[in-house]
Amino acid sequence: MKAKKRAGLTVTYIVLILISIIWLFPFFCLVLQSFRSYQGEFGGMVNYLVPKKFSLDSYKFLFQEGSQYTRWYTNTLIIAFVTALLQTIVVICVSYALSRMRFAGRRALMNVWLVLGMFPGFLTMICLYFLLKQLGLTQAGAVPGLILINVASSGMGYYVCKGYFDTIPKSLDEAARIDGASRAQILVQMIIPLAKPIIIYTALVSFMAPWCDYIFASYVAFGHSDSYNVAVAMQRWVWTNDYQGYFTRFCAGGILVAIPVTILFMCLQKYYVEGVTGGAVKG
């Protein structure tokens, strides 16, 4: 019996190790590629894994004079931070209103939002572009423009947060109201502290999304390279023929993006799990 159990465990370990290798291999390759020199060796794609000579050329390129990489990085950071902050506030507001208050048209509102959510996001890209342009928030104003777009519709993503609010007993609210607290006080002083995990989850998810936004971001920046975010700027290095031999630089830049985002994610993983699990159950 014990031997059987041990055999079972061994198999489990082998499977887990295999999975881990598959999961980490692409990242490992990516790191190796980023250390290949675009000057000494070749900056494009190659069909071997280990660089013939390790070098930091690609990283140096990102920070050398005339490179806009830091600018793009800062843009993305700003977008991510402000979006995370404002989006979290919006989601909390909407979730509280829908979870705690009963008003005329509440059901209808939720249904309309559900219907709106069934349209694919890319459908309205051209219209959003011109709306933003009317507000002067394209090209040079693309960074605030993207924040506006990210935040404006974030109210519709209330499901997970509202689901969590629903689990906080309403009797707490009622007790506080009897003590004379207003709705606003209840939200700020009671619900928000109790809902900390889901708030961190909301902020984390909204912080991570802008790092991968290259479609709409490139539309809004409209060729104004000062307004690019990292994703927009770097996908050009891979996809347009104007940039020959930029592949290793893409890898290097990508790794510098991945490191902070990954660290942040790992630190807040606990909350993320809580969020997705709650979201999965509540739908």
Partner: peptide, 9 residues
């Protein structure tokens, strides 16, 4: 890791 690292990379 695959959730954490941005997909465009």
């Amino acid at each position: 890791m695959t959730i954490a690292v941005p997909q465009f990379v």
